[in-house]
């Protein structure tokens, strides 16, 4: 474990806590893409298949359980909680996210570290996570105004993978045989997808104005 990876995990956890706060405090999920949340649930289930077979550390197991449980709870809330589901922007959240699932799985069948079920599902979860934010960014473009908690949620979600990139650079420099090309290239693509959001987020923060994404 290094400081970059710890910062990344804590930022990722923070993004989930901010989203849970928004949904719990406002009893609303307006501005949140359910499709992106469903993709994240698939990402965590597919990535943590080793939850019961490989014990790394208490921290590792604890965080995996938190990520799986929170992503499933958020999807459940957005689908079945009477108050929350009413505020879902169904007509704005129209990205065909199943294409992302199919494409990521197809890519994982071609590009993986080992041709085993666990490795293919791991690569699939890495590719899917890189594009999982797309329905959310599309929804933001359509809904125009972004409430503070949603903006902070997306900011922390984007920042966490940027910390992971620093982690991979650090590990590459300090650990002789460390290579995680699939995760690293995918992580760079994932972070790049947030580039314009980060730009408008920074502008709104600098001008102390409401975050607006150009339609």
């Amino acid at each position: 474990m290094n400081i970059f990876r710890l910062a990344g995990d804590m930022t990722h956890l923070l993004s989930i806590l901010v989203l849970l706060l928004k949904i719990y405090a406002t009893k609303s999920c307006s501005g949140i893409s359910r499709k992106t949340q469903e993709l994240y649930a698939i990402v965590f289930v597919a990535r943590y298949l080793d939850l019961f077979t490989d014990f790394i550390s208490v921290y590792n197991t604890f965080m995996k359980v938190v990520f799986i449980a929170s992503s499933l709870a958020i999807v459940w809330c957005m689908r079945f909680h009477p108050m929350v589901r009413r505020s879902y922007d169904r007509e704005l959240d129209t990205f065909r996210h199943y294409f992302l699932v199919g494409a990521s799985f197809a890519l994982a069948l071609i590009l993986h570290e080992k041709f085993t079920v666990q490795e293919i599902f791991w690569a699939f979860s890495i590719y899917l996570e890189a594009v999982a934010i797309l329905p959310q960014l599309v929804l933001l473009q359509r809904s125009g105004n972004v409430d503070n908690l949603t903006g902070q949620y997306i900011f922390f979600l984007g920042a966490y993978r940027a910390f992971y990139i620093l982690n991979w650079i650090y590990r590459y420099l300090t650990e002789p045989h460390f290579t995680r090309w699939i995760a690293c290239v995918s992580g760079v693509v994932q972070t790049a997808l947030y580039a314009d959001f980060f730009y408008y987020y920074f502008i709104s923060w600098k001008n102390n104005s409401k975050l607006k994404l150009p339609a």
């Binding site: 080793d50 490989d54 790394i56 570290e113 992971y164 982690n167």
Partner: peptide, 10 residues
């Protein structure tokens, strides 16, 4: 499983 197969990152 070999050591390097185990994914120690989240």
């Amino acid at each position: 499983k070999e050591a390097d197969d185990v994914k120690d990152e989240l």
